[in-house]
Amino acid sequence: MRRESYRKLIVKRLSQDFKSAAEIVEVPIPQVGVGQLLIENKFAGINGGFDTLVCRGDIPYFEIIPPFDLGVEAVGKVVAVGEDVTGFHIGDAVVTTVRGSGYREYQVIDANLAVKVREATPEVLTLMPTGVSALVALEQVGEMKSNEVVLVTAAAGGTGHIAVQLAKLAGNHVIGTCSSEAKSKLLKELGCDRIINYHTENLDQVLKQEYPKGINLIFECVGQQVFDTCIDNLAIRGRLVSIGHISEYGKDVEPVTQARIYHQLMWKAASVRGFLTPYYQEYIPEASDRLLNLFYNGKLQVSVDPTQFNGIESIPTAVEYLLSGHNCGKVVVRF
């Protein structure tokens, strides 16, 4: 017997933390319209940083007025197909990456926004949009080449471990930072050339001693002191791509009282560049196809954190877990 209602997570009111902002509601399963698909979500990807910022109303590129739906990437099965839809059938596995479509048990979406995949597994959530972001940021913003030194911070995370592999596939020497032996083991398995556990080694000292000419490309998503250290160790014509600053998510912005960074950039002709996926939409389809091909052909490993989060009610705990920095790979919730 088909269900008539489903649960989803919404923001009822803006708040400084995800848990107090989010609320589970039960609503009727919508009818599929012309050109649409009804999808039963099986897994959703957790994006602790974005989730926290959106609950605080701190996303500047779109207006945030509660109530609104939460979650972005999900993978599931098509359970109904609307009129005028071609290329999709009931039972197909699909990935969606639309804001508000992730933290819910069912969703209706325009068919042209769904991507068909072989199976509805959590691994594909590491590729889209997480891995896609890594690929586009490295190539389009970081202008990644071969035979360079590339540094990836938070390298064992959902985005970082994909960035490490992409940089290696491009023929670079890759340094990865992490915070535990378990994460070091993962990075070693992925072929990382130099692993820096910042709980046992000093990042700045290692970079200055072992890489005196500096780092050509830095994929940076931690922020605060790690960001400052990375700026200080850029090579001549080095590029730092900032894709986030997870050390400050959910916290007050740290005031900085030191010399402005143009003193470090200009004399090296170095640069700092920000990356945000919505501003690079034209590169997403090709990047998605390429990543899926790499994965299906065994050239790209995907790490999904083994910690189990089951059901809508587990999502706030999963967000807190991700922000704690204990994860190895992508954090997902199962429905």
Rank of each mutant, 00 (worst) to 15 (best):
M1Q: 09
M1V: 10
R2D: 12
E4C: 00
S5P: 01
L9W: 04
L9T: 07
L9Y: 05
V11R: 05
L14Y: 10
A22I: 10
E26A: 07
E26M: 08
I29S: 08
V32K: 06
V32Q: 06
I39E: 02
K42E: 14
K42D: 06
A44K: 03
G45E: 09
G49Y: 07
F50G: 07
L53N: 12
Y61S: 08
F62L: 13
F62Q: 12
E63A: 14
I64L: 14
I65V: 15
P66G: 09
P66H: 09
D69W: 05
L70S: 06
K77Y: 13
V78M: 05
V78E: 04
A80S: 14
A80E: 15
V81L: 12
G82Y: 11
V94T: 04
T96S: 13
T96F: 01
V98Q: 12
R99N: 09
G100L: 08
Y103W: 15
R104W: 01
V108D: 11
A111P: 06
V117L: 10
R118F: 00
E119L: 05
M128W: 12
P129Y: 14
T130C: 11
T130W: 02
L135F: 12
L135Y: 13
V136Q: 07
V136D: 02
V136A: 04
E139W: 08
M144G: 01
K145Q: 14
E148W: 01
V152G: 03
A154T: 04
G157Q: 08
G157D: 07
G157S: 14
G157P: 00
H161P: 10
A163E: 10
Q165F: 09
A167M: 03
K168E: 08
L169S: 10
H173G: 01
V174G: 00
C178I: 09
S180L: 10
S184A: 14
L187K: 06
L190C: 09
G191C: 02
G191H: 04
I195W: 00
N197D: 15
N202A: 03
V206H: 01
Y211N: 01
P212G: 06
G214N: 05
I215N: 02
L217P: 01
L217C: 04
I218G: 00
F219G: 02
F219N: 03
F219K: 04
V226N: 03
D228F: 01
D228A: 08
T229K: 14
C230I: 02
I231R: 03
G238D: 05
G238K: 08
R239T: 15
I243K: 03
I246P: 02
S247G: 07
S247Y: 08
E248F: 04
K251T: 04
D252M: 11
D252Y: 11
T257Q: 12
T257H: 15
R260V: 13
R260I: 13
I261N: 11
L265K: 09
L265A: 10
L265T: 06
A269I: 08
A270I: 09
S271A: 13
V272M: 11
L276Y: 13
T277F: 11
Y279V: 01
E282T: 14
I284G: 04
E286Q: 15
A287T: 03
A287C: 06
S288A: 09
L294I: 09
Y296I: 09
N297A: 14
N297V: 05
G298E: 07
G298L: 04
L300F: 04
Q301Y: 08
P306R: 12
F309H: 03
N310Q: 15
E313C: 02
P316E: 00
T317W: 00
L323K: 12
S324Q: 14
H326R: 15
H326G: 14
V331K: 06
R334E: 15
